[in-house]
């Protein structure tokens, strides 16, 4: 055994080397997020649950019941019932439901939406929609605009 190898054994150099790596990693910035207490920031294009939007100025519903989103939905989760307006111009919504159980968050429904300048249907940033039963996942027209009320679990 040479002098160097002897010193390495006596002074536990390799052990200290390993501990140095451990120590260095103690001071690296955290990359994980403690989820329920803090949440990550989303990109503006993040695709959460699809929602309906009202005109921000007039407060009227933007949807013109063109059925294009229903037609392009690959999972057939959107169902729209529309009727003729009483004044004979165009159609108006009777019901608009999205079944979130089926929705695959592809965002294809937003592409063909013809309302300008903002689309009536949009991908919101909401993502927490755990429910207690299947009915909780069928969002009606009002819930699609205001957001489905979330039951908070309390102990």
């Amino acid at each position: 055994m040479g002098m160097q190898a002897f010193l390495q054994k006596v002074l536990l150099l390799e052990l200290w080397q390993g501990m140095w790596v451990t120590l260095k990693n103690q001071f690296r910035p955290h990359i994980t997020v403690e989820y329920p207490r803090e949440t990550v920031e989303f990109a503006p294009r993040f695709r959460g649950v699809p929602r309906l939007r009202k005109d921000p100025q007039t407060g009227e519903e933007l949807c013109i019941s063109c059925l294009l989103c229903e037609a392009i939905c690959p999972t057939e989760c959107i169902s729209i019932v529309a009727e003729k307006r009483p004044d004979g111009k165009g159609k108006q919504l009777v019901s608009f439901t999205i079944n979130y159980e089926r929705c695959c968050f592809c965002g294809l429904c937003v592409d063909p939406c013809p309302t300008k300048p903002i689309t009536a249907i949009y991908m919101s940033h909401d993502y927490e929609f755990a429910g207690y039963d299947r009915d909780a996942y069928v969002a009606t027209r009002e819930e699609l605009v205001d957001g489905k009320p979330v039951k908070i679990y309390t102990r």
């Binding site: 503006p44 294009r45 993040f46 695709r47 695959c104 968050f105 965002g107 991908m123």
Partner: peptide, 12 residues
């Protein structure tokens, strides 16, 4: 990818 297309796994 999230910034580009809005999704992290199933991009479309």
């Amino acid at each position: 990818f999230e910034a580009f297309c809005g999704a992290r796994l199933t991009y479309n």
